[in-house]
Amino acid sequence: MEQLVIAGRWRVYTAVLGYCILSNYYMGFMLCVFAALYYPAVYFGTEKRRDGWWKSCVRFAGASVLSGGISAVVLIPMDGDR
């Protein structure tokens, strides 16, 4: 989360959150809730911000939605009989 806010590196956050949702849905859900609560604390608690509040918030939301989409690949049914 700190790298996402300070340096703008979203790939590691996306991969970790997607893997957590994929491996254990309930733990991943709790991690999403914790990340949503922890993001404002990290953003307003650090002084070395890379971008403005709006751009950083969009990056956080986009990375979170992308990780949910990556883990949703498992939900797509693969029926080979059709």
Rank of each mutant, 00 (worst) to 15 (best):
M78N: 10
S23P: 00
S64V: 02
L4K: 04
G68C: 15
P40E: 02
R9H: 13
R50I: 02
F29D: 00
F44C: 01
L4C: 04
G52T: 07
W53D: 00
Y43N: 03
V65D: 00
S56L: 02
C32Y: 02
G28A: 01
M1D: 02
V58P: 02
S67V: 06
S23H: 00
F60R: 07
Y19V: 14
V58W: 13
M1V: 13
D79T: 11
V33N: 01
V42S: 01
K55I: 12
L31M: 14
Y26R: 01
I70D: 00
E2R: 14
C57V: 08
W54D: 03
S67K: 04
D81I: 15
A15R: 05
V74I: 13
M27N: 06
S64H: 04
Y26W: 14
R11M: 05
K48P: 02
L75P: 02
P77E: 11
Y19Q: 00
S71A: 15
C20E: 09
G8V: 06
C32Q: 11
L4Y: 05
T14W: 00
F60N: 04
A72W: 09
S23M: 10
R11T: 08
R50G: 03
T14V: 12
Y43M: 00
C57M: 11
W53N: 08
L37Y: 10
W53L: 15
V12Y: 05
A36D: 04
G45Y: 11
G52S: 11
F34K: 02
S56V: 03
S64R: 01
F60S: 07
M78E: 13
R11K: 07
K48H: 12
W10R: 04
G45N: 07
G68L: 09
G80K: 13
N24I: 00
L37N: 00
L75V: 02
G28P: 08
L37A: 14
S23L: 11
L22R: 09
N24P: 03
G52E: 07
I76N: 03
A63E: 02
V42Q: 07
A72R: 04
V65M: 12
S56R: 06
S71K: 00
M27A: 13
R9K: 15
C57F: 15
L75M: 09
G52M: 05
S64P: 08
V65T: 13
A35N: 13
V73S: 07
I70V: 15
G45M: 05
D51R: 10
R49A: 04
D51K: 09
G80C: 10
R11S: 07
I21Q: 07
D81K: 14
W10Q: 06
T46C: 06
A41N: 07
I6H: 06
N24L: 00
I21R: 06
T46Y: 08
V74M: 13
R59T: 15
G80D: 12
L22M: 07
S67T: 02
A7H: 14
Y25H: 08
G69W: 09
G45D: 09
S56Y: 01
L37G: 12
A63F: 03
M27G: 05
L22E: 07
S56F: 05
I70M: 14
I21T: 05
Y39M: 01
E2Q: 13
S67I: 06
N24Y: 09
Y26L: 10
L66C: 11
Y39F: 15
L17H: 08
M30D: 04
V74K: 14
V58L: 15
Y39W: 15
L66I: 13
V12P: 06
W53G: 03
Y13C: 03
C32D: 01
